[in-house]
């Protein structure tokens, strides 16, 4: 059972290959696989400009961080990006401890993350 995470996926206006993914709940070892499948599917379909809204992501552990780094790497390999916005302090601390803050593109809010996508086009 992986009941603790929900991903809400929507289009990004004026960003043809973009998607906004709202992460809600806890990302951990019990649900990384289903998260991986959903996000990988998007990337495979050509949506390589991804903004992940973490406003309602309460929790992430090392396994969850592992797949976030994987998404970032996969999107970059396809000339895209995986940007993260609205990270709460607790989650940011974990990202920082493992040094992922230098590997992930982190923004204060979704608007800034989307604006950075538009400037790259």
């Amino acid at each position: 059972m992986d009941t603790q995470i929900e991903l809400q996926i929507s289009d990004l206006d004026n960003v043809p290959h973009g998607k906004l993914i709202k992460f809600m709940g806890d990302l951990d070892a019990t649900n990384v696989e289903s998260t991986l499948d959903q996000v990988t599917k998007l990337i495979k379909e050509g949506f390589v400009l991804i903004v992940a809204d973490f406003r309602n992501l309460r929790y992430v552990n090392s396994t969850g961080l592992g797949i976030l780094l994987h998404f970032s790497k996969t999107a970059k390999e396809k000339s895209g990006c995986f940007k993260i916005a609205n990270v709460n302090d607790n989650v940011y601390e974990i990202i920082e401890i493992i040094g992922a803050n230098t590997l992930l593109d982190i923004y204060d809010n979704v608007e800034e993350a989307i604006a950075s996508l538009q400037t790259r086009r």
Binding site: S62, T63, G66, I67, I94, I97, I98, L103
Partner: peptide, 18 residues
């Protein structure tokens, strides 16, 4: 910490730090 492309091996780093 493991290299950035590894998906495992970060858990105990977090435990140590906290």
């Amino acid at each position: 910490p493991p290299s950035s492309d590894k998906k495992k091996g970060r858990g105990l780093v977090i435990v140590q730090m906290l």
